[in-house]
Simulated scan of single mutants.
Amino acid sequence: MVLLGNCTVLHVIGTEPSLHQPTFYFLAMLDFTDLCMGLSTVHTVLGVLWGFMQKISLDFCIAQSYFIHDLSSMESSVLLVMAFDSIYALFLVIMNLLLDAMLIIISYIVILHTVLAIASREERMKSLQTCVSHICAVLVFYIPIIGLTMVHRFGKHLSPMVHILMGNVYILFPPLMNPIIYSIKTQQIRRRVQKLFSLKAV
């Protein structure tokens, strides 16, 4: 699912000219990082779960730990840049609305009322959807990290299976959920994915 979801979003962004914009480039970077995170650990996880591997070498363990931490840092950086991009886009919308409002300010007493009167419902919903998608992606990334940290810090008495489960959630949950979040919340990607799989576009 991680491979299919992230590769689908990367394919859609790469092949659809209308998606060649900074926002979608950031999303492609996030998907690429998620894909690398999943691929760096999936063979070990599957090998242990299917009984092919009992242990891994120290060198392989160190290399895998390096990739996990490095890719986590990269994903956190991409999410930070996406947050700045969203804030900048919202800032431009608000500034445009305020500049328009200055022309009509004499007829209104409250500036907030002016901004809301000028902004269309569609513009407000689009801004809100962008924020919701980004907040969901941040939560999907940081909640497993916080959960894993809390289990390691306060859960020393817990079964080793809990630690293993939380580690797998931390590594596999964000790469699985990010394509779903952005495919559902971004109309351009959703329509292109539907077209890719020959579904009727909504």
Rank of each mutant, 00 (worst) to 15 (best):
L97A: 10
L80G: 11
L103K: 15
L92C: 11
I94H: 01
I94D: 00
D100T: 02
I104S: 13
I106E: 14
A89P: 02
Y88H: 10
A101K: 01
V93Q: 07
I104H: 14
N96T: 02
M95Y: 06
S76C: 15
L98G: 00
I106Q: 12
I105H: 09
L79C: 08
N96F: 04
M102Q: 14
D100G: 02
M102H: 11
A89F: 06
S77H: 13
F84A: 13
D100I: 00
S86K: 06
L79Y: 05
V78H: 04
S86F: 06
M82A: 05
V81Y: 10
D100F: 01
D85T: 05
M102T: 13
A101S: 13
F84W: 10
V78R: 02
F91N: 03
M102V: 13
F91V: 01
D85F: 07
L79V: 06
V81P: 04
I104W: 07
V93L: 14
L97F: 04
I106D: 12
M95R: 06
A89C: 09
A83D: 06
L80I: 11
D85G: 06
A89H: 05
L97W: 03
Y108S: 13
I87C: 09
L97R: 01
I94Q: 00
I106R: 12
D85Q: 05
I94P: 00
S76I: 15
N96M: 04
L98T: 03
D100W: 01
L98D: 04
V93C: 07
I105S: 13
S107Q: 14
L92P: 00
V78L: 08
Y108R: 11
M82R: 02
A89Q: 07
S77V: 12
L80H: 10
M102P: 02
A83V: 05
V78Y: 05
M95Q: 07
D100Q: 02
L99D: 14
V78A: 06
M82P: 00
D100K: 01
M82H: 00
D100C: 02
L98W: 04
A83W: 07
